[in-house]
Design a protein around this nucleic acid. Structure first.
Length: 729
RNA sequence: GGGCCAUUGGCGCAGUUGGCUAGCGCGCCUCGUUGACAUCGAGGAGGUCACAGGUUCAAGUCCUGUAUGGCCCA
């Protein structure tokens, strides 16, 4: 095989065939398909090539072991890896503090990825043959052994060898060989790779003398290693180097360790692990950060990972263009669930017309479904972002680039609009505000059920939001605020107070408090619109006009620096919540009936209501609320009310509302029969459950009792419906 | 080959330790709207929770297997 040595691989392959033929060893030559990896950039086959590379001995306990011991105790999987039992860098047994057991993953399943990877870690090749990156700060000089002109290092090397004996490991005696470079602060190593060669390596650390040393090295014929560091090696230093390390800077002191690192799961091994290893190694066991939040990944509408190189990604600027920055941020927050992937179906915006459309797709290399490079609509052409990203097409005046968009962001856009309009309404309808009063409690005002209810809801929303943020449950955070602002505040509270607001100080106070707190809570997800509304609110409502007992809202010029609201226990009002829910159910049932009867919303209907004593009282007291919301005129409420002739019956548990003079026998029959079927189904469900002896015997008593109550209620309603039907004939 | 995740109405997603009649946004249907908002309001239809077994009084939720898709590692 000797003739092959030194040949280029292509040539060597030909020569091998010739050699086999020459020795009469060739059986057959035939084509076949094979799977050889190709470079994704240059598309040439990838060939093995043996070279010297630089490695970091990450398998050492000072790196691997420290990383494993960083993992919080509760997130460690059972393991027989000795690293968990080894001493820490400071020589102590592993325990709380100094970074040990201080690292926590959210969602916690990712701790497994981290542990698993470290337990199977191999030494890390950090040299790369690329143009871009940090050049390896090592200078090397080679001598042929025959010349015997290696100076200091060589004699020390021989000395060391004679003392410790010769052997494979002695070819890399590194630290043991001091020389002039070591004396000036460098690290040096020598190597004796084969019988003819002697090499000396000098690593130059950053220092004031760095320039001078490098100059001297060059003068003496040392050459810098042409390789650069693996990008993840450089990145591993990020928590330190960005803060001024290796100097002891105030920034390093304050921000290392920091609280949380937020990243994608594919980065856990590449980056998170390396930062943990390096930080602990260089900073006496300190962690770079305490929490690691792994967020979901956005896939395209076809379930493919979005990728810059594939060209199926979405430029955030496109979304900002179509929906706005707040809408984008809100929607992305809402998409940040604890799961692994979320899909984002992507559409395109026609640059000629501004219309949104679903593009034509093609299959690109690798089987990836992407928008065709050129899209055509109404005889006009445009270039897709894939067309540009892939380099297949260029945008021109006739064929401009089309932006991407996605209707998923409509929710955020609508929400921003809703918020804006709620404030617009408030500013227009608030009326004159009375004397400022920093000390305001509902107990001293004539607050209504609705006031107490919305403040209860606000308090609960703050709790939900705080919990969600503490747990990195960002979707829950966004959802809680959406529900509070839109569903509770706009749909119900504002609808209830809109007629009386301008002359009711307690309502003004409650509304303003809700608006102020909403802005504070929403600011992190919708910074722009909330800051703008904050300024407007500041012009309209003095700061000592906001807040109530249990919710202190400190003044602030800018929302971004305003205090986060803290809900006191006194905001909570369980009875208000319960009563309001009851009224809400009644209102919805009446609206439902109005719809079934096709009663125009503007047409006021007279109504009488039958309900048990306390509920009657509640309904009577809140007629200011139910009346307008159902557009009904109350004509009496009490425990003993007969159905007026010609009225429709609305059953809501123990409450019955009669809508006068709307009855159409056929409609009412159809409606009640549907209701009857519903109730029958319910009764059957509960009956089935209760007739199961095992359920009655084994289920917790309170659940069985609950089922009994439900059954009794359902039967009662069933009978009522039957009675109503009988009355209709 | 190993590991992790997902599969819930047309689409995108919630559903905490197994326990009210499985929710939300978009879309769809009906009705409405001259003063916060058509980027709106009220109401409605639509789901045997991928499939097959199992555990349990009780399974979307726990266990086993299968299928499909996604990601990481080798």
């Amino acid at each position: 095989m000797k003739p092959l040595v030194g040949l280029a691989r292509e040539e060597a392959r030909k020569q091998i065939v010739i050699w086999f033929k020459g020795h009469d060893l060739m059986g057959e030559v035939k084509p076949y398909r094979h799977a050889v990896g190709h470079s994704y950039r240059s598309h040439v086959p990838i060939e093995p090539y043996y070279t010297d590379q630089w490695y970091v001995k990450v398998t050492d306990d000072k790196l691997k072991g420290e990383a494993l011991r960083a993992l919080s105790e509760s997130q460690r999987q059972a393991s027989d890896d000795s690293s968990f039992n080894a001493k820490t860098l400071s020589g102590q047994d592993a325990k709380e503090g100094n970074g040990d057991a201080g690292l926590e993953f959210t969602p916690d399943r990712y701790a497994k990825t981290f542990q698993n990877w470290h337990e199977n870690i191999r030494d890390w090749c950090i040299s790369r043959q690329l143009w871009w990156g940090h050049r390896i700060p090592v200078w090397v000089k080679r001598w042929a052994v025959e010349t015997k002109e290696f100076g200091d290092s060589w004699s020390k090397f021989l000395e060391f060898q004679s003392e410790h004996g010769a052997g494979q490991d002695l070819q890399r005696v590194a630290e043991h060989v001091g020389n002039q470079w070591v004396d000036s602060g460098c690290t040096a190593a020598v190597r004796y790779p084969d019988a003819k060669t002697f090499e000396e390596y000098v690593c130059v650390p950053p220092s004031d003398d760095e320039e001078a040393i490098i100059q001297k090295l060059s003068q003496e014929g040392y050459i810098q290693d042409p390789d650069v560091l693996d990008t993840w090696f450089s990145s591993a230093l990020w928590p330190m180097s960005t803060m001024g390390w290796p100097d002891d800077t105030p920034e390093l002191e304050k921000w290392n360790p920091t609280s949380v690192l937020c990243t994608a799961r594919e980065i856990i091994t590449l980056w998170v692990s390396r930062m943990v290893m390096f930080n602990r190694y260089f900073k006496g066991g300190d962690l770079p950060f305490k929490d690691v939040f792994i967020h979901a990944m956005i896939q395209d509408g076809h379930g493919q990972k979005m990728s810059k190189s594939l060209g199926n990604g979405v430029d955030p600027m496109d979304i900002i263009h179509s929906h706005g920055a707040d809408a984008m941020r809100y929607t992305l927050t809402k998409m940040t669930t604890q799961t692994q992937d979320v899909r984002l179906p992507v559409d395109m915006v026609d640059p000629h017309t501004g219309e949104t459309f679903t593009p034509d797709y093609v299959t690109a290399s690798g089987g990836v479904k992407v928008a065709a490079p050129i899209q055509e609509r109404g005889g006009k052409k445009m270039v897709s972002s894939y067309g540009i990203a892939s380099g297949k097409e260029k945008a021109t005046d006739e064929m401009p680039a089309a932006r991407n968009t996605s209707e998923k962001f409509d929710e955020g856009q609508k929400f921003a609009n809703k918020l804006w309009n709620a404030f617009r309404f408030a500013f227009a309808s608030l009326g004159e505000l009375g004397e400022p009063n920093a000390d305001f409690g509902l107990e001293q005002s004539n607050a209504t059920l609705a006031d107490r209810w919305i403040l209860d809801r606000l308090g609960k929303t703050i709790d939900t939001v705080d919990k969600a943020l503490a747990n990195y449950a960002f979707a829950d955070y966004a959802t809680a605020l959406y529900d509070f602002v839109w569903r509770d505040l706009c749909d119900w509270y504002i609808e209830i107070v809109k007629r009386s607001l301008s002359e009711t100080p307690s309502q003004q106070r409650v509304l303003v408090t809700c608006l102020d707190a909403s802005l504070r809570l929403l600011h992190p997800v919708m910074p722009f619109i909330t800051e703008r509304l904050w300024a407007a609110l500041g012009e309209r409502v003095p700061s000592d006009w906001r807040g109530v007992h249990g919710l202190n809202l400190e003044a602030s010029d800018m929302l971004i620096t305003a205090a986060w609201p803290k809900a006191g226990a006194s905001l909570s009002d369980e009875s208000a919540e319960e009563n309001f829910e009851k009224l809400r159910t009644i209102v919805e049932a009446v609206r439902n009936a109005r719809n079934a009867y096709k009663i125009p919303p503007k047409q006021q209907v007279e109504a009488t209501t039958q309900a048990p004593g306390p509920v009657s009282q509640l309904i009577f007291e809140t007629r200011y609320l139910t009346g307008p919301l159902t557009n009904c005129k109350g004509c009496g409420v009490g425990p003993h009310i007969d159905r007026p002739a010609g009225s429709a019956t609305v059953l809501i548990g123990d409450v019955t509302v009669y809508l006068h003079d709307v009855v159409d026998v056929e409609t009412e029959k159809a409606r009640l029969e549907k209701l009857l079927a519903d109730k029958q189904k319910q009764v059957k469900t509960f009956e089935g459950r209760l007739s199961n002896k095992k359920y009655v015997d084994n289920a917790p008593a309170h659940l069985v009792q609950e089922t009994r109550d439900q059954q009794a209620a359902a039967i009662k309603e069933l009978e009522q419906v039957q009675q109503q039907l009988a009355e209709l004939g």
